[in-house]
Write a protein that binds this DNA or RNA. Structure first.
Lengths: 258, 258
DNA sequence: CCCTTAAGGTCAATGGCGTTGGCATAAGGA
DNA sequence: TCCTTATGCCAACGCCATTGACCTTAAGGG
């Protein structure tokens, strides 16, 4: 067992644990999700997981290379849930909206798990299926390939990015979460009009809006831009005063600015 | 020291550490940023920080309530860097673009630190100043207050969300990072046309695009939607087939869907 | 139906982590 | 110069992930 690679699902299930249950990847992932919900995103520990499964912590290393490998398996499960049972209607705008909201909702439904997995790229089946779906929807809308890829990129990363952000808020220990929410009601609401005039005048609206997710709004703006672009590919009159013909001018690399 | 609240910046600096240096919040935060860059986002530990400062780990608790408090201070520093030295031009669209790209860049320049702080709300001075700035820009554009708040919310959360997502990629151990990038070139590029036709046809474009940040594209689409909305507040003909009059219809709460 | 074999459990130990209580000492006001 | 106390240090506690050695028992051939 120094570094004995873990056998795949082709394992001939063998010994039950001392309490009688027979382990499996599925069983472990489910237990992990339960632990995450109950103890927070930092509450998934090998010891606790062993305790929850009535098995020794070291047993987990028969199923996963380490805790990181386990989190990838958890992420795969979440993606799978997102589009489970959904079928496209053919209305590209509606379909894109639904897919976005579903993926976002699936992650946000398991915030503590989402925090650990949102930014990981697994290349597994469920992830591929989701990508294929989005590309297919955009193709059906009639975009040229270059625009399909541009919009796909913005759409999927925006969805994952908001999922991660919103999940992170929800995954905070409840004390910190309440503190954050009350920040908008108390701190921000009582800022002096003299030094923070714009925050002060917007405070009531901010207090109600900032405690919700901005994803629906941002998604709608993205869809809006794509819709209008389908009619008028290049920006006509009445746009931003600044001039640039490409809707997505320069995509910098993710960038080691140091 | 059971729970001896930490005195504020009104501390009369006193003893130097045994190696002669006199500690300060600034010094500690800088050292923390250095550690994060060198050892990754999980590499900031009290022990290592103590080592880097030639001070006992427990000394840090004279300056911060705990490691969490320290991360908030780090986040504050990042926000401060983002808008340092910038002044608005008066062109709202350009200003909004610049502010967005600057905040995004500031976080992405310290990916390992950004991972820890992007989703936290501190309510400190630098954060407040940034919020005030964005609201002021939108007000100057002529939006009514309700729209100011709507767009502000989408803009700031989108910026932070992408910053977090992109930072998370960069903060991965370099081995995992290369693996992710090659995933698009190898795994995705060689998927069978039969089962994944859309991915297959888009593969070359995906390979070059997916390894960059989608933030510039998404930001441009948001600005595009806002710009056009300023001219035509309610959606006219030629929009999405699905009907809804509000650009941002239902903002769900961040949502315990359980 | 028994016997071998190795898969898959358990145990114990290692080294790292955040955090805290007690103690020592030097800085700065008097 | 002396006293107070802010601020540093030390040692210890109870977590954590991971690993190597050992043991138990089910699987599957004979």
């Amino acid at each position: 067992m120094p570094k004995p690679v873990i056998p795949e699902e082709k394992r001939r299930r063998r010994r039950p644990t001392k309490s009688g249950t027979v382990l499996s990847e599925r069983l472990i992932v489910d237990a992990a999700l339960r632990l995450l919900r109950e103890h927070g995103s930092a509450g998934l520990t090998a010891r606790r997981l062993g305790l929850a499964l009535d098995a020794d912590p070291s047993t987990l290393y028969r199923y996963f290379r380490g805790m990181d490998d386990l989190t990838l398996a958890i992420g795969d499960a979440l993606i799978g849930q997102a589009l489970e049972g959904w079928t496209p209607t053919g209305e590209w705008c509606e379909d894109l909206r639904t897919v976005g909201l579903r993926i976002h909702a699936a992650y946000v439904a398991h915030p503590q798990a989402a925090v650990l997995t949102t930014s990981r790229v697994t290349g597994r089946a469920n992830e591929l299926a989701a990508d294929e779906t989005v590309l297919e929807i955009l193709r059906g809308a009639g975009f040229p390939l270059a625009d399909i890829v541009r919009i796909y990129h913005a759409f999927i990363d925006q969805t994952l990015a908001f999922a991660a952000l919103d999940a992170a808020s929800l995954a905070l220990p409840s004390a910190a979460l309440q503190a954050d929410e009350e920040m908008w009601r108390k701190t921000y609401a009582r800022l002096p009009m003299a030094t923070y005039p714009r925050i002060a005048e917007a405070a009531p609206l901010l207090a109600t809006r900032m405690v919700t997710s901005a994803y629906p709004t941002a998604l709608e703006m993205l869809l809006d831009s794509a819709c209008r672009y389908l009619d008028v590919p290049l920006r006509g009159a009445g746009n931003c005063a600044t001039s640039h013909n490409e809707p997505a001018p320069a995509n910098g690399p993710i960038a080691p600015l140091s």
